[in-house]
Write a protein that binds this DNA or RNA. Structure first.
Length: 155
DNA sequence: GCCAACGTTGGC
DNA sequence: GCCAACGTTGGC
């Protein structure tokens, strides 16, 4: 099996890596962007590794590692009228939004801030650096390893 | 809290 | 199918 690598963003005060550590596994609810959905629905497999990124944080950056813990399935919040993620155009017969379960793997000894990622030559092609506003994105194997190394070093 | 970037919606 | 208006993301 060839493991793939991803980066997933979560607002730190919404659902942090500490929350994931407590929960062990969580449903990645609420993604409402088609490109991000397609990656979860079509490309992710259990065991794939995830850089866990804190957005809207001080500083924003990669806080640890998680892994894909399920096949994709419809996001149940799209059917729930009381949910902030409700989508009135989604039906159970034709769901619009898919997700995967995500499992905690490790918390980095320090957050690798976005500023350092932007400054690192070997990460200049990262989707995180080149594109804004994509909360689920592919990461290359070598990029994953570089970020992990940076977490072990001092800033 | 501001606001630029940019994805989505919906009128035509 | 274009594109203006709108809403959201997310750094700062």
């Amino acid at each position: 099996m060839t493991r793939k690598y991803w980066l997933m963003k979560s607002e730190e005060d919404e659902y942090s890596i500490g929350d994931l550590e407590s929960d062990g596994t969580t449903r990645w609810v609420g993604v409402r962007n088609y490109e991000a959905r397609n990656l979860m629905r079509d490309e992710m497999s259990p065991g794939d590794r995830i850089l866990y990124y804190h957005s809207n944080a001080n500083p924003s950056g990669v806080a640890g590692i998680a892994e894909v813990a399920s096949e994709s399935y419809p996001d149940p919040t799209q059917f729930d009228p009381d949910s902030r993620y409700h989508d009135r155009k989604a039906t159970k017969e034709e769901p619009r939004w898919f997700l995967v379960d995500v499992r905690f793997v490790e918390r980095f000894p320090r957050v690798v801030p976005l500023s350092e990622i932007k400054a690192e030559d070997r990460l200049s092609e990262m989707v995180l650096v080149k594109r804004m506003r994509l909360s689920v994105q592919p990461v290359r194997n070598d990029e994953f390893e570089v970020v992990r190394e940076m977490a072990e070093r001092k800033g």
